[in-house]
Design a binder for these strands. Structure first.
Length: 608
DNA sequence: GTGTAGGGCGCG
DNA sequence: AAAGCGCGCCCTACAC
C-alpha cells in the first residue's frame, strides 16, 4: 500500500533535524481551481503554474520560485504542509516537469490540517491558527497577488510581500509544533490509507459514462426549453408565473416536501404544475450531469478515476466527500434511466467485493447504552434483522415465526413501525420530526397524535437509551466553563486516544447547553451527544476493519461510512469474499459484547 | 468580479 | 419539556 521510501533508512540521522514546512503557491482563477478539479486534475492541467514555494525550518523563512529552492537541503527530512495532498500533487507535477529533481523526497510528510481535524479544531489555516496560536494569518496581500504567475515576481517583491509569501509556511510550522504530537500513529495511518486509496481511484465504464452524460445533458436542455422563464430554476420567476396563473405558490418546491406534493396534486393537469415538476426533474438530471462531468475530469492515464476523501471530514471522525466530486453520495438506485453506481466497474479479471456493516449505528447505540437484553437477542439470532430484534425486545412481539412473515400474512405494519423507531427515535427525535422520518424511511403515514404516542412508547420501552441521553447531557453540563473530552471506547485500551471534544461548555440564559465544536459554538443536548458518540464509535469499527483488511492484503478502493469496496481476483473471488467478511466481523478487543455483522457480495459493477 | 446564504438533492 | 445528526455540491440571489 505505502510507497517504500528509500530515504527512510536515513530517518534516524535526519530525525534530529527539525521538520520543515513546505507551502506552494499556485495560479488559480474562477474557472480553474482545486475546488472544481480536485488536487490531481488541477495539477495536471495545462494552466498549472506554481509561482512560489516557501519553507520554514523554525529559524529561517525562505520564499522564491520553485526552481530556485535548495531542494537537496530539504531532501530526506521531515516535511509538513497544511493540506499535504495538495502540496504533494504540486511537487509531483514539478518533478515531472523537471523543475524539481526527481529524487527529492521527504522521509515523512505530515499534514497539519489533518492533525487539526483530528483534534476537532478548525481545519483551515486561518481558523486553526486563531484557535491554537491565538493569531490569524494576514490575508490582506492575497487579493493583490491573485492571478500572478509571473516568473520575475520575486525580483519585484518588497519586504512586506515576501513576509506574506512566507507567513503560511511559518504558521504551518508553528501549528505542527503545537498539534503534531497529539495526532496518534493509528490515525496517521488512516490518513495515509485515505490518500493512497483516492489516488489509486476507481475503474469506470467511460464509454457508458459519456453516452449517459450526453443523453442526460440533452434531456436537461429539453426540460429547460419547456419552462417559459430563465433561469429555469429561478424560484422568483416560478412564483411570478404562479401569480400569472392566479395560483398560490407552494411553500417549498422540494420534490420530497409534503406540502409541495399536496400542491402538485391540487393543481394536477395545469401548466404551472407541470413546470414545477419539471423543475424537480431538472435539478435531479442536472446534478447527474455535473457528477458525470466531474468524473470525466478525474480520468487518469491508467483509465482509473482519481477521487478524494477528506480524512476526519466530520466532527465524530467520519470521512467526507471532497475535491469537487463526492463519491459518498452517489445515487443508490436508477434515476432518469441511469444507475450511477453501475458506472463503477471491476477491472479485467477482477470482481468488486462490497462489504458493509449491517445496521451498525443501531447496534452501537444499544452497546453504548448497555442494553444487554437486546444485544443478547441480536447475538443469539444472526438470522434476524435489527427491526425484528427491536420488535421482540421492546414492542412485545413474541411469535416464533420471522416478523417479516408475520407481517405479510396478517398485513401488519409492525415491522415498518419497528424500522421507523430504530431509524428515527434513538437520538431523541420528537413527534413532529418523527412523522417525516417514518414517511421517508419506512413509508408510514402517521398523524401527530399517533406520533406522540409512539415517541412516548419508545422512550418507555427503551429506558437504557433514555438513560444514556441523560447521563451524557448531565456529564457534559457538569463541565460548564471547561472543555468536555468524551472518550471513544477504542481509546479504552490506551494505545490510541480518541475523543469527542466539546470546548468551553456553557449554559445559556434558558438553561440550554452549548459548546465550541470545530471552532463554532453549537447547541447541544443528550440526543446529539448520543448520536455523535454512536457515529464516531461506528467510524472506529470501520477504521479498525479497514486496517485489518489492509494488513491481510486487502486494500479497499472505496470506503463509504459503513462500507468497504475491494477489487479481488475473479479466480477464487468467493474465497476472498469470505475472508473479507471474516475480517470485518472480527470486532476489535475494545468492542467486547458488540455483535458486528457484515453483508458481503461480489459484483462486476458497483451498486446497492 | 468574489463571497455567502438559502433552497434543494444526494448519501450513511 | 423539547430538540435527528453527520456530510458535499449545484443553483440562484444578493451584498460588497
Amino acid at each position: 500500500m505505502q510507497e517504500v521510501n528509500p530515504v527512510a533508512n536515513n530517518a534516524l540521522v535526519l530525525a534530529a533535524l527539525p521538520p520543515i514546512s513546505v507551502d506552494f503557491e499556485t495560479h488559480y482563477a474562477s474557472d480553474y481551481s482545486v475546488k472544481e478539479l480536485g488536487n490531481r486534475a488541477y495539477c495536471h492541467d495545462p494552466r498549472f503554474n506554481a509561482w512560489a514555494v516557501s519553507t520554514y525550518d523554525g529559524v529561517t523563512p525562505w520564499a522564491g520560485r520553485p526552481k530556485d529552492c535548495d531542494w537537496q537541503n530539504l531532501h530526506g527530512r521531515e516535511w509538513v504542509s497544511h493540506h499535504r495532498e495538495f502540496d504533494k500533487a504540486v511537487l509531483e507535477r514539478l518533478q515531472r516537469d523537471g523543475v524539481i529533481p526527481k529524487h527529492i523526497a521527504p522521509a515523512v510528510w505530515h499534514c497539519s490540517a489533518a492533525a487539526c481535524a483530528f483534534l476537532q479544531l478548525p481545519r483551515d489555516l486561518e481558523g486553526a491558527c486563531s484557535a491554537v496560536l491565538g493569531e490569524a494569518p494576514d490575508k490582506s496581500f492575497r487579493k493583490a497577488l491573485k492571478g500572478r504567475h509571473d516568473n520575475d515576481l520575486f525580483s519585484s517583491l518588497d519586504a512586506e510581500e515576501t513576509a506574506y509569501v512566507t507567513q503560511d509556511a511559518v504558521l504551518c510550522w508553528r501549528l505542527w509544533q503545537a498539534v503534531g504530537s497529539r495526532w496518534p500513529e493509528r490515525e496517521r495511518l488512516l490518513f495515509e490509507l485515505t490518500a493512497s486509496m483516492g489516488s489509486h481511484g476507481l475503474c469506470v465504464d467511460w464509454q457508458s459514462l459519456d453516452a449517459e452524460r450526453q443523453r442526460l445533458s440533452d434531456l436537461c436542455g429539453s426540460l429547460q426549453r419547456d419552462i417559459p422563464w430563465t433561469p429555469s430554476l429561478s424560484l422568483k420567476e416560478f412564483k411570478r408565473h404562479c401569480g400569472f396563473a392566479q395560483v398560490t405558490p407552494p411553500a417549498s418546491t422540494a420534490a420530497d416536501d409534503a406540502s409541495f406534493r399536496a400542491w402538485c396534486r391540487k393543481h394536477d393537469g395545469t401548466a404551472i404544475a407541470r413546470y414545477a415538476r419539471n423543475m424537480n426533474r431538472i435539478r435531479t438530471v442536472n446534478r447527474l450531469v455535473k457528477v458525470l462531468e466531474a468524473m470525466q475530469q478525474r480520468r487518469k492515464p491508467d483509465n482509473r478515476m482519481a477521487y478524494e476523501l477528506k480524512y476526519y471530514g466530520a466532527t465524530p471522525g467520519r470521512w467526507s466527500g471532497s475535491g469537487g466530486l463526492n463519491v459518498q453520495n452517489m445515487n443508490r438506485s436508477e434515476i432518469e434511466g441511469l444507475d450511477l453506481r453501475k458506472l463503477i466497474i471491476a477491472p479485467e479479471n477482477k470482481l468488486l467485493a462490497v462489504a458493509d456493516f449491517s445496521q451498525i449505528e443501531a447496534r452501537v447505540l444499544l452497546w453504548l447504552a448497555g442494553d444487554g437484553a437486546t444485544l443478547e437477542i441480536l447475538a443469539a439470532h444472526p438470522e434476524m434483522d435489527m427491526y425484528e430484534v427491536h420488535a421482540r425486545a421492546t414492542m412485545g412481539y413474541k411469535a416464533p415465526e420471522p416478523l417479516k412473515d408475520y407481517c405479510e400474512t396478517t398485513k401488519s405494519n409492525l415491522r415498518q413501525l419497528a424500522k421507523a423507531r430504530v431509524l428515527g427515535l434513538g437520538f431523541r427525535c420528537g413527534a413532529e420530526r418523527f412523522i417525516e422520518v417514518a414517511r421517508i424511511m419506512a413509508g408510514l403515514e402517521i398523524d401527530i397524535h399517533d406520533a406522540r404516542k409512539i415517541v412516548r412508547e419508545y422512550r418507555d420501552s427503551n429506558p437504557k437509551i433514555v438513560k444514556l441521553w441523560e447521563t451524557l447531557e448531565n456529564t457534559c453540563a457538569a463541565h460548564e466553563g471547561k472543555d468536555y473530552y468524551l472518550p471513544f471506547p477504542c481509546a479504552s485500551l490506551g494505545d490510541s486516544p480518541r475523543h469527542l471534544i466539546y470546548r468551553d461548555v456553557a449554559l445559556d440564559d434558558r438553561g440550554g447547553l452549548t459548546a465550541v465544536v470545530c471552532g463554532e459554538r453549537v447547541d447541544l443536548h443528550g440526543g446529539i451527544l448520543a448520536e455523535n458518540w454512536t457515529q464516531g464509535t461506528a467510524r472506529d469499527l470501520l477504521a479498525d476493519a479497514w486496517i485489518r483488511c489492509v494488513e491481510s492484503g486487502y486494500a479497499p478502493v472505496l470506503s463509504v461510512h459503513d462500507e468497504l469496496v475491494f477489487e479481488v481476483d475473479a479466480t477464487d473471488a468467493q474465497g476472498h469474499l469470505t475472508q473479507i467478511k471474516r475480517l470485518m466481523e472480527s470486532a476489535p478487543a475494545w468492542a467486547k459484547g458488540l455483535p458486528v455483522k457484515a453483508d458481503v457480495k461480489l459484483m462486476t459493477r458497483y451498486g446497492k
